[in-house]
């Protein structure tokens, strides 16, 4: 494992910790999209089915379990915690997730490495992760004002993807015959989804003001 990959994973982990801390400390999930969190849960469940039949490393297994547990913890807070769930912007968080899930699934059936249940589901999770942040970005666009923690959460998620891109470039030059087109193309799409957000995030940071999205 190279340093970019490790940094990417740590940024991903940190983004989740930031989100959980925001929810726990402020007892509020205002500005957080439950749809995006549920999509991530679907992504992790369909991708990490290999926990049952393969072992890569202790690091790999532990990280997978952490991602799964934290995803469901966040969902639990947003749906069941009696204080937090009242701060959820249900009326604003109306993205139709089936418009993401169905095309990703059809694409996974058409473009995959092997026509098996676990392989198609794994491919589906790669495609779905690329677009899972969209409900969150739409919610931000609607509520306009972005609180610091939510902004940092999305910024870290985007950074994690950018670091994965660098990791792939590094691996391409250091590992003989290393190619993975499905992951590369989806990962590039996924990183591009964040570009607009990055622009406004950096602008707010440079001007030392609270982040605002244009209408």
């Amino acid at each position: 494992m190279n340093i970019f990959r490790l940094a990417g994973d740590m940024t991903h982990l940190l983004s989740i910790i930031v989100l959980l801390l925001k929810i726990q400390a402020t007892k509020s999930c205002a500005g957080v999209s439950l749809k995006t969190q549920e999509l991530y849960a679907v992504v992790f469940v369909t991708r990490y089915l290999d926990l049952f039949y393969s072992f890569i490393s202790l690091y790999n297994t532990v990280m997978k379990i952490i991602f799964l547990l934290t995803a469901f913890t966040i969902i639990w807070y947003m749906r069941k915690h009696k204080v937090v769930c009242q701060t959820y912007d249900k009326e604003q968080d109306t993205f139709r997730v089936l418009f993401l899930i169905v095309p990703c699934f059809v694409l996974a059936l058409l473009v995959n490495h092997e026509m098996s249940v676990t392989e198609v589901l794994w491919t589906f999770s790669i495609y779905l992760e690329a677009v899972a942040i969209l409900p969150q970005l739409v919610l931000l666009q609607r509520t306009k004002n972005v609180d610091n923690l939510t902004g940092n959460y999305i910024f870290m998620l985007g950074s994690y993807r950018a670091l994965y891109l660098v990791n792939w470039v590094y691996r391409y030059f250091t590992e003989l015959g290393y190619r993975q087109w499905i992951v590369w193309v989806s990962g590039t799409v996924q990183t591009c989804v964040y570009l607009d957000f990055f622009y406004y995030y950096v602008q707010a940071w440079r001007n030392n003001e609270r982040m605002k999205l244009p209408g």
Binding site: H12, N60, Y164, R171, Q180
Partner: peptide, 10 residues
């Protein structure tokens, strides 16, 4: 059964 390279990524 050999895992593909990318399967070691999260």
């Amino acid at each position: 059964f050999k895992l593909r390279e990318d399967k070691d990524e999260l």
